[in-house]
Design a protein around this nucleic acid. Structure first.
Lengths: 339, 339
DNA sequence: CTTCATCATCGAAGCGTTTCGACTGCCTAA
DNA sequence: TTAGGCAGTCGAAACGCTTCGATGATGAAG
């Protein structure tokens, strides 16, 4: 293993000079810097991360706490993970992966061992047991998601409530007066995951404000689950012509089920999906959809980590939802509804 | 921050005694051990990972190189990642997440900085550019997947060729004489990902050996992609009554498409899926399927890392495929095929 | 000319562990 | 009785880096 002392010797300078040349914390003459760089290249020197963290008290590693559950749409989770990892690299940091099944203890372990400089935490619940721990730790934290109370912690998330409103508004603009939300599974609502609630709140608020009928039903992500939810919509709110699907695994199934019951999209009913654009585009009818900007949010989370590390104070950022029109929402000029 | 010196002072022993009590590398009397443990608990002491890695030359962290591509079925990837992370914790290791877009350089960076003790590498291609690097590194490596040449590196994967044969055999046992493989996208074949090839090889070998007709077509993971692949099957091999789907995103679509063309599953055609059991069970017809034992393979990978770290030599393990019968494959007593 | 910054560099003191070699009793085998 | 071993402990030397406080030069300001 080649050490900083080897480099110093090869370049004919002292160890501290090499260190300063590398960190730039003190001026080093251009000539010396070049000699040092040459030595580094020739020897293939890489600083020892452990020694560095011991001496400098920072690791250039951030922990990412990722969920490990089945009621979440995994591709989106993965997109967040990838976005955070990639953005972290751009900030010269690595990512230590924590699976949420370790809970608060995992965070304490990793922080206690001085393994990371900061935390990025996904899948936060209203009353997440990790929050008090995170507040106590000296390492800064960025939450992806919005807990009940965020004081002292940075947060970044999609503005789900605005997304819910946007979905309804789009259908209202197309003349629909009875819309249904096919939402996440009941489990997602019961656990305090706030995005499910916030989206539904936006949906219901907008329906009430615009004076149309709106019904929100949760949905298990399976063929039968979708069938049950659809049946509820048909009996509890007959004449529904606008569907909002906030449940990725069932969008394809929903489309087939609607057609199976004689309703053509978009001729008879309109469908608006919430989820990745690839999903929306890969269907029988290209779906108008509200995307989940996971890349943007992940990158933002890392920026916020950098801000906190630089001493700035925690803040909350909500990303505005964006709707992409495709082929699944049509104008409805008359007010009669077909079943 | 509380250090080992604080603990030693509180327990009235020397620093080295605390260290030995913790590592167990030298005998320490029960009484002393208890006093030390009490001090540790009281002070909330956690060893500093950096200092530890500096002195002991091991980090208790393993790197996991995970793919970042879209032609892979993400939930399965995530399952591998979760399995490795969980198993690593069981072995008192943490996981540093590397995204494959960093390529060989990422591995070199992390190894050079002594950040990890070992590598687990996913998504290996036939002629993966990371292989020569990994062989050169002093940290041991376990590959999840099978490259062209595995010498010097440990590998673990599903026995995809056996899986392909198993799929065909199951359909043959049910009297089918014309079977089709709806496979991964062309991109998966073109990149040297061996699992796509191996499955197809198993499929084709078994078809040839049993003397039935077999046709393999790749498939883009979208509604239209499936339509195109299905059309190819219908024209190139009319009378196909057995379908093997090795392409998770389109299984639902395939089912609907078959029904849409008047073919009932399993009455008219049988369908056998390759993928997670949840996927197979969530469909309109519960699909007979061959699972991908990601948990098992991930755990095995970590075991193999532990073996290598303990000085044992590299080895290759192929996990036997398992087929679960559900409702999508039916016996076909007559040999006439309907379109 | 002094005096004072500033630039460029060096030496040494940590940072918190592990591990090696010694040392002290005490027990056992010859 | 003594040599040898072993259990239990200690002190000190690494491990590879950062950073603080010098120390000479050099140049500008008075």
């Amino acid at each position: 293993m080649t050490t900083i002392a080897d480099v110093a010797r090869a370049a004919g300078v002292s160890v501290s000079t090499v260190s300063y040349a590398l960190s730039g914390r003190r001026p080093i003459s251009a000539e010396t810097r070049e000699r040092i760089q040459a030595a580094i290249d020739e020897l293939g020197y890489r600083p020892h991360a452990g020694a560095r963290s011991l001496a400098s008290r920072q690791t250039r590693v951030m922990a990412l706490a990722a969920p490990l559950r089945t009621d979440l749409y995994v591709p989106v989770i993965m997109q967040f993970v990838a976005a955070v990892a990639t953005a972290a690299r751009a900030h010269d940091h690595d990512v230590l992966l924590l699976m949420n099944d370790e809970g608060p203890a995992g965070l304490e372990r990793v922080a206690g061992g001085s393994m990371v400089d900061a935390f990025v935490v996904m899948d936060v619940a209203t009353n997440d047991p990790r929050l008090p721990v995170l507040r106590r730790l000296r390492e800064p934290t960025v939450l992806i998601g919005l807990p009940g109370r965020a004081d002292g912690l940075s947060c970044v998330d999609l503005d789900w409530e605005a997304a819910g409103r946007l979905a309804v508004q789009h259908l209202v603009d197309h003349g629909h007066t009875a819309v249904a939300l096919v939402g996440p599974p009941p489990a997602a609502y019961e656990r305090g995951t706030t995005y499910a609630h916030r989206f539904r709140t936006g949906f219901e608020t907008a329906a009430a404000e615009t004076g149309i009928r709106g019904l929100a039903v949760p949905c298990e992500p399976s063929h039968d689950g979708l069938g049950a939810s659809l049946a509820r919509v048909d009996t509890e709110q007959p004449g529904t012509t606008g569907f909002v699907v906030h449940n990725e695994p069932v969008v394809g199934t929903l489309l087939h089920a609607l057609r199976g019951s004689g309703r053509e999209v978009p001729h008879d009913v309109s469908v608006l999906a919430v989820g990745p654009h690839e999903l929306a585009e890969g269907q029988a009818v290209r779906l108008t959809s509200i995307g989940i900007p996971a890349d943007e949010i992940g990158a933002l989370a890392v920026e916020m980590v950098a801000d906190l590390l630089a001493g700035r104070s925690p803040q909350t950022t909500l990303v505005a939802p964006r709707l992409v029109e495709r082929d699944s929402c049509a104008h409805r000029s008359d007010s009669s509804a077909g079943v």
